[in-house]
Simulated assay, not measured.
Amino acid sequence: MSRTSRWATALGLLLLVAGCGGGDDGGDETPPPPVTPSGYSWSLPKGFPTPKEFAENPMSTAKVELGRHLFYDPRMSINQSASCASCHLPARAFSDGRTTAIGTTGEVHPRNAMSLTNVVYNATFDWANPVLKTLHAQALTPMFAEFPVELGWSDHEAEILDRFRFDPKYQELFAAAYPGESTPVNADRVAKAVAAFVSTLISGNSPYDQATFQLNNSAMSAAARRGQNLFFSERMECFHCHGGFNFSQSVSHAGTPVAQEEFHNNGLYNIGGKGDYPAGNRGLWEFTQRPADMGRFRAPTLRNIELTAPYMHDGSIATLEEVVDHYARGGRLISEGPLAGDGARSPFKSELIVSFRLTAQEKLDLIAFFQSLTDWEFLCDSRFADPFGNSPRHSRCN
């Protein structure tokens, strides 16, 4: 067995015994699901830690169900033409397939809609926002954003809330989710219910998980295992930004005393040879104004990455094959036009982004490994489906 094979195997076994909340002790009995102080019982994959729960938004089954309805309801938008699910489709692992998102009024967002897979484990939210650190705070952004408009709640809050306040079904759902409250239908409670629902979108039964955490040696193909060894090798350095149980180093859960907040410049742009990124898409720099933060974005999870194209914060890379080419080069070369520059030479590029060479077979193996992170049980889970039947699941789920 090679050094990288031993390393990858050891990593999986270490995660199994390191106190991650969803694993078992190797016996025949399955341990009870972890229960948080609120009394909510999480349904977690083996090897997964218990999500962090916030006192201001305790989880409950009733709140999750309210959030599921709100997430898929187009009445959440000012013109009743879009829902949260419009940018986070279950068939695409809760991303949307567009280069960048489009709001309910047709305004184009500068960023690609991230997958909501395992979003409950994020240390920060959005692509490069160090301020948003809870899902219920993040949910208010698409509701009230004006530049661009997403759902269009600004100046229309009462109008939108009345659609739910006078709906008999929602009266029952809100009362169950917020018992004892005389006026539970408000923007804060809406955001917290949506946050509760998306917190349950936990994916962890891919072929990789079955092989690593459930010790099913036949779950991954030989090509995927070779790709896994490449991914976890020092030759490629992938795991430094996309490591751990969630294939993202930027994580927070009940077992992390300090959230791991990480942002990286991956050499996507180097406009004019000065390290600049396009206006409105400059990453962490937009908050700090520090030159070293130019182009630094959060590395998203790679789980279900096969279904979440196009890639990068601005959707500017179309396929996984092109993503591999980008990293193999050590940064993207744009030869002409207003964005021209060699990302491999960016003065702000992360030292973790190094060039490497792959044979044609190795590239296929790496793609096979990425495909082994697709969790069809998650994608087809009826708990996450549209209660109104308007957002179709993947054809494989039928």
Rank of each mutant, 00 (worst) to 15 (best):
A328Q: 08
G106M: 00
R68W: 00
F166W: 12
N229W: 03
G280M: 09
G244L: 03
A123H: 03
K169W: 00
E107H: 04
N216E: 14
P300C: 07
T212C: 15
C238V: 05
T117E: 09
V120S: 13
L173V: 02
Q214L: 13
L379T: 05
A137N: 13
S218A: 15
E261W: 02
A123I: 09
M236A: 15
I102K: 12
M236P: 00
C241S: 11
A196R: 01
S83I: 06
L379W: 09
W42Y: 08
F197G: 10
E56T: 10
D365G: 08
N205K: 01
Y72W: 05
G47A: 13
Q289E: 14
F147C: 04
V251H: 02
A139W: 00
V149E: 14
A177M: 00
L268F: 05
F166P: 02
T141Y: 07
P49M: 14
L161I: 03
M76W: 03
T374Q: 10
T359I: 01
E362A: 13
G67M: 02
G67R: 00
N122E: 12
S355T: 03
F384I: 00
L132H: 04
A93C: 12
T50E: 15
S355V: 00
A368E: 07
S81D: 12
P32E: 14
L364A: 13
T374E: 11
L302W: 04
R226Q: 08
A158P: 00
G103E: 05
T36V: 03
E234T: 12
Q260Y: 02
R225G: 05
T61S: 14
F231P: 07
F370L: 08
F174Q: 01
R383M: 06
E65C: 02
P74L: 08
A328Y: 06
T100H: 04
R396Q: 11
E29L: 15
F213Y: 15
P37H: 09
E261L: 13
D276N: 10
P58L: 09
F144R: 01
G315L: 06
R189S: 06
G295K: 03
V35I: 13
P110E: 07
L70N: 03
F48Y: 15
V251Y: 01
P338D: 14
E237I: 05
P130N: 09
G47E: 14
E234A: 14
T308E: 01
E351I: 01
R290F: 01
F144Q: 05
R396V: 11
P32C: 11
D381M: 09
S199I: 01
P142W: 04
L89W: 08
F369Q: 01
I367S: 13
H313N: 11
M236E: 06
